[in-house]
Design a protein around this nucleic acid. Structure first.
Lengths: 231, 231
DNA sequence: CCAAAAGTGTTGGTTCTACACCCATGC
DNA sequence: GCATGGGTGTAGAACCAACACTTTTGG
């Protein structure tokens, strides 16, 4: 096809944006870049598309290569394509995102690439347009979390109501009345109360809950009304 | 950079998915492909990324070249990247979508490429993965329309309540009680009633409304509860 | 005068926000 | 015994779904 010669053939990158929650704080996983240019600067976990590989597959491979994390379901959130976004060479980047329970994957985390969790409000300068990617990802997270009960992915098997509330407040950059929050959350029929308390946060201790797996008639829309005004 | 040689350098396409509303039906704009392979098959409006062009820019250019439509705000909705999605050559495609008032752009529509509006439920076989793109676009439209008053883009300057309701019902593939729908819609403070009726749909005629531009305290969440169960 | 679509009102139940107090415990 | 964070209850307003009848007018 001769007419395709005027069209560009860029490198295609995937960048992985992984959110986690630890010590009551929303965090993002970043690595120190090993390649030139911008060696030793912080960035998302990125790599290039190979032959016969879809972007979904590339994202999983790249994440594993750079962090050791495996079996994490990521979702495509956006594609960045400004012609000068990578000064070295024309590159477009497809961004993938996921939410994980930090403690669950701690053992898997390979520190060869100096992967570190940063609080979302204390993210260092990032290469290229990666800061914009994080911003787009946070926005996506809000919209998604408003409509679906996905934030539980960030918590462990068991968690307390004050913990979940803190997570919601971090994600929506807002604060909620604890009485209303807890009523709505319990009203969702998503949780099952355990006979065990987390005493790390207070003297009294807060009861643990777990996700109720068999419930199939949950009412998530009650939580939506909380989040709606923050979208 | 020698290590980049193992990475692919595919063509990068943009495909435009344009929704419109006409005769109480949600429609999609398609063209008959002029290029080999799959000449004369129906497809979205697509083209390739050029030098120094971002995907956003390419999408606007391609849409204009193939249909004559200009000044349409499109949003990026997803990127398709399976390695064999285009049998001729490795190509990834970034899909953009928009909602337009068909009658407003009718004059601009250049029929050189045989652009036609198809009802969403009567879309012919499409090339490559374009049918999947339409499906993803419809899903995106639902989510977006549930959270924001965007469907008005599909209607003209003035419209009647039964018209809007029909549009909502098409988009959400559902039906709503007209009394509740109209109460919520008017309660949103988004509309301004005109002293004029549309008599084309009934003997009695339905009053026209227009978008109230100055209102900045609208209550869109009331409409959300209608749509929520369809997401 | 009648068919066909527009328009409107009510009710009982549910959920909303806003708010203040008691509880359990470790120190 | 007190400071700290956990947990709950209430009231009045707003909103919800479900439902049936009247209005207008072209034919």
């Amino acid at each position: 096809m001769s007419q395709t010669s005027k069209y560009i053939r860029p490198l295609v990158a995937v960048d992985c944006l992984i959110f986690g929650f630890e010590n009551q704080t929303l965090k993002v996983l970043l690595i120190k870049r090993k390649l030139q240019p911008y060696q030793n600067e912080w960035s998302l976990m990125g790599g290039f598309l190979k032959d016969k590989e879809s972007a979904d597959e590339a994202a999983s491979r790249v994440l594993k290569e750079l962090t050791g994390l495996e079996g994490i379901f990521m979702e495509q959130i956006a594609t960045f394509s400004k012609f000068d976004r990578d000064p070295a060479e024309r590159t477009i980047s497809i961004v993938y995102s996921s939410l994980i329970d930090i403690s669950k994957f701690e053992a898997q985390l390979n520190h060869a690439y100096e992967a570190h969790w940063f609080k979302v409000d204390e993210i260092p300068a990032l290469i290229f347009d990666h800061e914009e990617m994080v911003a787009v990802g946070r926005d996506y997270l809000k919209k998604k979390a408003a409509l679906q009960p996905i934030l539980f992915e960030l918590l462990g098997e068991k968690f307390t109501i004050p913990q979940i509330q803190q997570l919601y407040e971090e994600v929506f950059e807002s604060s909620f009345d604890k009485r209303n929050f807890s009523r709505k959350l319990l009203g969702s029929k998503l949780l099952h109360k355990l006979n065990e308390k987390d005493k790390s946060g207070s003297k009294k201790g807060a009861f643990y809950y777990e996700l109720d797996k068999q419930t199939n008639h949950y009412n998530f829309n009650t939580l939506l009304t909380l989040a709606y005004s923050q979208l």
